[in-house]
Computed example of a mutant assay.
Amino acid sequence: MPPQRTRERALRHRLAELRGPETQPKALDARALAALAANPGCGRRAILDGAGVDKAALARALGAPSAFGQSQFALVRGNAFEAKVKADGGTELLRLAHERLDRSAEPPTGAHVPDLSAVGPAGRAARTALALREATASPGTWTLLDHPMLALDVAGSVAHLEPDAVIVHPDGSWTVVEIKSFPMLDGAADPAKVGAATRQAAVYVLALEEVAARLDPAPRVRHRILLVCPKDFSNLPTASAVDVRKQRAVTARQLARLTRVEDIADALPEGICFSPELPAEQLTAAVEAVPATYAPECLSTCELAFHCRDRSRASGAVTPLGRPVRAELGGLTTVEDVLAAARGEAGDPDDPAVAALRRAAALRAEALRTAAPEVAPCP
């Protein structure tokens, strides 16, 4: 057997051990990859996601559950809106794509919607790649791929991603479609929600580029995605073309910086397992064996955020104060170190962070002395 195949088989076996016996892996999605790319230094999230560990179940077993994810109402509403957008063979969706992205092309009078069903994620990814190849080889028509499956290599493991849709234009170029249930009021939507959708779409663009790179000639993957949302307070779809070049570049750079999963797994002690069925003490020790990089932003993107925050606070780390504060403090990694430096009890006076802390402490003491009211002596 070739060495590469041997290493891949050994890695799969190791990840299965970490996940737990007879535990099915939890598939990575674009939302998880976008969050992982936003915090590339977190080895804990990298190994848990790479091994397919259910982090929500793990957080509950650790006693720190999080209310992470969409409500049932939001899921039902989103599915109903997506079905409306794609009704009648995607007629309305293609009309929006022509209007917002490709006015120079012939208006779509119909679309080819290939069957993408296959066995397993790998089979669906292969079927999607074939459908994209066939659509690109037949220019002049619009093709709509409904929930295609894309494969993306992430830190040595393959993630299978499922965008809402991909459109093949008459000129053979490809566009990612994101369908969201949050409203677009007067042509604008919530910037935070649009930002999250854009980062997620950037992951799909990267995966599509990997598919395109295997074709000769390689088709163009458009860097303007189609974001479809309800118009105002109705259920009528409207759309906006969103440029994701910046998010794509950032995501590609961050994913490239991720520590490879096998490197993290090799550094772990033998016998480590993250199965939620284990006793809490054993599970806590296993999780703590992998270093984490906590930041307040994790609260909205990671199921283990509450556990990591509690541990950071218990150790007196400065990370719960946020990345900007952490960056300003340099080598001062704990609150006790910061207070000692401010009091002049520790730290190098030539360190800019230490000098700034001592200056701030002196200004505070001076302000408190000035503001202190004079108390008249008792008669």
Rank of each mutant, 00 (worst) to 15 (best):
V168I: 11
G63W: 10
P40H: 09
P107W: 06
E297R: 12
R248E: 15
V375L: 14
T319E: 15
A340I: 09
P163W: 07
C273H: 03
P191D: 08
L132G: 00
P352M: 10
R77P: 04
N235D: 13
I272L: 11
K26P: 01
G195W: 04
M184Y: 01
K86G: 04
N79M: 12
L11M: 10
A32T: 13
L145A: 05
L101A: 03
E262P: 00
Q200D: 13
T141L: 08
G43W: 04
P183T: 06
A280G: 04
T251G: 03
H169M: 09
G69A: 08
A46P: 00
A252Y: 04
E162F: 04
P377C: 10
P108G: 11
A314Q: 11
P2M: 09
A218W: 06
G50H: 00
L144K: 06
R224Q: 13
D54C: 10
R309F: 11
T251F: 03
P352R: 08
R7G: 09
L268I: 09
E262I: 02
S117I: 02
S104G: 15
R214V: 11
H307P: 03
A197T: 09
E209P: 02
T128I: 12
P279G: 03
A197Q: 07
F81K: 02
P170W: 00
D348C: 05
T198E: 12
V203N: 02
N235Q: 13
R9T: 11
A207L: 08
S104Y: 05
L58C: 07
V354F: 05
R222E: 14
C229M: 14
A252H: 09
M149C: 15
R309W: 09
Q4P: 03
G110P: 12
L208V: 09
A30L: 05
G172W: 05
V119N: 11
A360T: 15
S104D: 14
R224H: 14
V375N: 04
K246Y: 12
I167E: 09
R5A: 14
G156I: 06
E8A: 14
R248H: 14
H112P: 03
E262A: 13
A16N: 10
K193P: 01
V119E: 15
P296E: 12
R364P: 01
